[in-house]
């Protein structure tokens, strides 16, 4: 699973903090490519597989407000 965060809307700091918080639920990897921060999720916990993407995005957005 891959999520592309636009650098204009999302900071690297927020993405890193969210990865730190969610690392127990999946294996995360990220890289910056052009205008985007690409986050890759592997070995996702089956209990949260359906919602992890949306919840993760919400959490990154929440961190942007802080």
């Amino acid at each position: 699973m891959e999520i592309k965060f636009n650098k204009k809307m999302y900071s690297l700091k927020a993405v890193k903090s969210a990865i730190q918080a969610y690392r127990g639920l999946a294996d995360f990897d990220f890289k910056q490519k052009g205008a985007y921060i690409k986050v890759e999720l592997k070995n996702i916990n089956k209990d949260v597989e359906e919602m992890i993407k949306d919840e993760f995005c919400n959490y990154v957005l929440f961190l942007m407000k802080l």
Binding site: K4, N6, K8, M9, Y10, A35, D54, E55, C57, N58, L61, F62, K65
Partner: peptide
């Protein structure tokens, strides 16, 4: 931020 508890949000340019 207000809608975070009601919906899933994502922004892009």
């Amino acid at each position: 931020y207000v809608f975070i508890d009601r919906a899933y949000l994502f922004l892009d340019s």
